[in-house]
Simulated scan of single mutants.
Amino acid sequence: MTETKLRDDICRFGRSLFERGLTPGSSGNISLRLDDGGWLVTPTNASLGFLDPGRISRLDAQGRLTSGDAPTKEIPLHTALYQTRAEARAIVHLHSTHAVALSMLPEIDPKAVLPPMTPYYLMRAGQTALVSYHRPGDPAVVAAIKGLAGRYSSVLLANHGPVVAGETLEAAVFATEELEETARLYLLLRGLNPRYLSPEQVADLVRVFGISLPEQDEHHH
């Protein structure tokens, strides 16, 4: 895919996410890994709803800016996930309401912030890990993400928002949307004792769709 097309895709998906209220103001950022080892990244203080394809930050393999505006300050976050998820080619980070709300609840399991609620959450996002609170841009978040050792493609930063990696930009966007939607369902059903998928139903999805879940991985070791 040409770099021009990739730039347009970032703008198109960014606008779609913004217009549906999934990341307000100038929050959220998107990055794409290019074949030469460099990246395209949304600029700092840029709204995902109003991106200019020509001004998207282009970084070389060393992370140096080669063209476009200055990149998002969340670069370390993206780098940490790319370094541990070899197959990742795109990362989406949002400040989406329901996922952020979920990240503050006392009962959530840091190894799996959501129970197995729907097949699509498991198929697109897998399981989501919680990373404890760090102020935006804090380098300590890098160590926290590296500590997950690449087992998770979706991570929720406490009091901040989701960071989701995918093999394509579309996959990363769809997984982030699925995470947000499932967080919303969880909040709607909280305290109502809903039926979640059983371990057998989850095992069936894992087998049929070849899903890789961190907990299944641990059982194999």
Rank of each mutant, 00 (worst) to 15 (best):
37 G>S: 13
183 A>T: 11
62 Q>R: 12
77 L>F: 12
86 A>D: 09
24 P>L: 10
51 L>Y: 01
115 P>G: 11
66 T>A: 07
123 M>G: 10
8 D>M: 01
81 L>N: 00
217 D>P: 08
127 Q>F: 06
206 V>G: 02
119 P>L: 05
118 T>W: 05
119 P>S: 11
73 K>S: 14
218 E>Q: 15
87 E>D: 15
2 T>V: 09
182 T>K: 04
91 I>D: 00
178 E>N: 11
129 A>H: 01
42 T>N: 03
159 N>S: 12
169 L>N: 04
103 S>I: 10
122 L>S: 03
27 S>D: 10
1 M>A: 14
13 F>Y: 15
174 F>N: 15
144 A>P: 04
168 T>A: 09
100 V>Q: 03
126 G>C: 08
190 R>H: 14
174 F>K: 15
113 V>P: 04
187 L>S: 05
96 S>A: 14
163 V>W: 07
171 A>L: 13
164 V>Q: 06
183 A>L: 12
78 H>C: 06
151 R>N: 10
122 L>G: 02
165 A>P: 02
94 L>M: 14
29 N>E: 07
121 Y>P: 00
5 K>H: 12
25 G>F: 06
125 A>S: 15
216 Q>Y: 09
215 E>I: 07
153 S>V: 12
144 A>H: 08
42 T>R: 00
152 Y>R: 01
25 G>C: 07
106 P>H: 02
52 D>M: 03
71 P>K: 04
212 S>H: 13
66 T>F: 01
3 E>I: 12
193 N>A: 14
118 T>V: 12
204 D>I: 07
203 A>D: 14
84 T>H: 03
68 G>P: 01
198 S>C: 08
192 L>C: 13
157 L>G: 00
55 R>W: 03
24 P>Y: 11
74 E>Q: 11
124 R>E: 06
34 L>C: 10
28 G>S: 10
176 T>Q: 05
86 A>I: 07
218 E>P: 05
83 Q>C: 12
127 Q>A: 09
67 S>N: 10
140 A>P: 01
46 A>L: 00
130 L>M: 10
213 L>R: 13
140 A>V: 00
153 S>H: 15
124 R>M: 15
182 T>L: 03
65 L>Q: 06
138 D>V: 03
78 H>E: 08
34 L>Y: 06
115 P>T: 05
169 L>V: 05
111 K>P: 02
58 R>M: 02
129 A>R: 07
188 L>S: 13
156 L>S: 07
82 Y>P: 01
15 R>L: 09
6 L>I: 07
219 H>S: 13
29 N>I: 02
6 L>G: 02
150 G>M: 10
215 E>A: 14
46 A>Q: 00
191 G>A: 08
4 T>H: 01
130 L>P: 05
168 T>W: 12
52 D>V: 03
23 T>K: 04
49 G>H: 01
17 L>Y: 04
27 S>Q: 10
19 E>T: 06
137 G>H: 06
196 Y>A: 11
70 A>Q: 13
40 L>S: 01
98 H>Y: 06
91 I>G: 07
96 S>Y: 04
114 L>Q: 01
37 G>N: 11
203 A>S: 15
107 E>N: 08
141 V>E: 05
43 P>K: 02
161 G>S: 13
7 R>S: 00
21 G>T: 15
3 E>M: 11
